[in-house]
């Protein structure tokens, strides 16, 4: 039991389980799944489907944060990717064909690749602080997205495109499958090769890892590209789910949710060790939190205040100073009371 509690994933998993249990108590059919027209339905599926874009972006963010960086531009990349693909479909001669949809996806991913290369260039080659480097794209990005859409909400009607965000495959929503595929890919690439260790090395001590002969510049570049491509795919999901590109509101504040998911999942903002599985659980917690607010009948306006309190609590729990304080309280029990280990 003790070793289980020491696992870094223990607390996020417990928090998620508690949230789910809370929902189950208030709505007895919460955890039930049912088949309808060959699709799986249920609150859990809804949480996963609505959380898919956040999970994707949080995966990219995890690797960026592991290198001691941060990527504030993901929300803007979401808007640009959605705008580019929808604008392409709307302008193409055959707006309903599968080829057009495939091209639109390609364009969005390429846009993400390009923006990631740009961020990586600023951080790794020019040496700008990550917050500031990605702030440039965060500021300009929504402007670029509006430039692409001409300031309008571009709506498209392409069933193939729509299936990315709203379709089903093997009884499951496509967006969940895409997210799962990216997760597996990222996990295999970083845990079955040396890449993961290299990323952690750069995050723990950039100077030492460079002196050890690591090409930290390339590694930093890779994580920013990965983050932007994840954001672009999330942008595809969000725009295809509503079959429209909204340059102003698509992915607004999603960078905050993603960072929050990473922190709740147990990856430290100081860089170094990271956990992709923790991030996924963190994103689930955030999405479940939103659902819980509805289930419990709390006015949805309070969600943001709730989130703020969760961020601060989690950060305080993670802070070494707060931990030391807790530890010293535990280590020095009041005189006269028998020592109890409360684990």
């Amino acid at each position: 039991m003790k070793s289980l509690m020491k696992n870094r994933l223990a607390w996020p998993v417990i928090a998620l389980a508690a949230l789910l249990l809370l929902n189950q108590i208030f709505r007895p059919d919460f955890l039930s799944l049912r088949m309808q027209d060959g699709h799986l339905y249920g609150s859990i599926i809804d949480i996963m489907r609505n959380g898919a874009p956040t999970i994707l972006i949080a995966l990219g963010m995890t690797l960026v944060i592991a290198t001691r960086g941060i990527d504030l531009s993901v929300g803007a990349v979401v808007a640009i990717a959605g705008a580019a693909s929808c604008a392409y479909i709307a302008a193409s001669p055959e707006p309903a064909s599968p080829v057009t949809a495939a091209m639109a996806v390609l364009i969005a991913v390429l846009a993400g690749l390009l923006l990631g290369v740009w961020n990586g260039f600023l951080v790794s080659t020019v040496g700008v602080q990550p917050i500031i480097a990605t702030l440039v794209l965060m500021t300009a990005g929504r402007g670029i997205a509006q430039l692409i859409t001409g300031g309008q909400i571009v709506s498209v009607s392409n069933d193939h495109y729509k299936s990315i965000g709203a379709g089903y495959l093997f009884t499951l929503p496509v967006s969940i499958l895409i997210t799962a595929a990216v997760f597996v890919l990222a996990a295999v690439l970083t845990r079955r090769t040396a890449l993961g260790i290299l990323i952690e090395a750069v995050g723990i001590n950039p100077v030492a890892s460079r002196l050890a002969g690591l090409r930290s510049r390339n590694i930093i570049w890779i994580v920013y590209v990965f983050s932007a491509v994840c954001a672009a795919i999330a942008g595809l999901m969000i725009s295809s789910n509503v079959t429209a590109a909204d340059a102003n509101n698509a992915g607004l504040y999603i960078e905050m949710d993603a960072i929050l998911a990473v922190v709740i999942g147990g990856t430290s903002l100081a860089g170094g060790r990271y956990t992709l599985a923790g991030t996924v659980i963190g994103a689930f917690i955030i999405q479940t939190l939103t659902t819980t607010v509805y289930t419990l009948g709390i006015p949805p306006e309070v969600t943001l205040v709730f989130k703020a309190l969760v961020v601060i609590t989690v950060c305080l729990l993670q802070a070494p100073k707060a931990r030391n304080l807790l530890r010293s309280l535990k280590a020095a029990p009041k005189p006269g009371t028998k020592e109890k280990v409360a684990i």
């Binding site: 941060i70 917050i131 905050m256 960072i259 922190v263 903002l269 306006e301 309070v302 969600t303 943001l304 205040v305 709730f306 989130k307 703020a308 309190l309 961020v311 601060i312 950060c315 305080l316 802070a319 070494p320 100073k321 707060a322």
Partner: peptide, 19 residues
């Protein structure tokens, strides 16, 4: 006092104030 990055604390402050 808790040695947390200003970035994340003020982000939470932003959530709180907006909320």
């Amino acid at each position: 006092y808790f040695d947390i990055q200003p970035f994340i604390v003020t982000l939470a402050g932003m959530f709180l104030a907006r909320g």
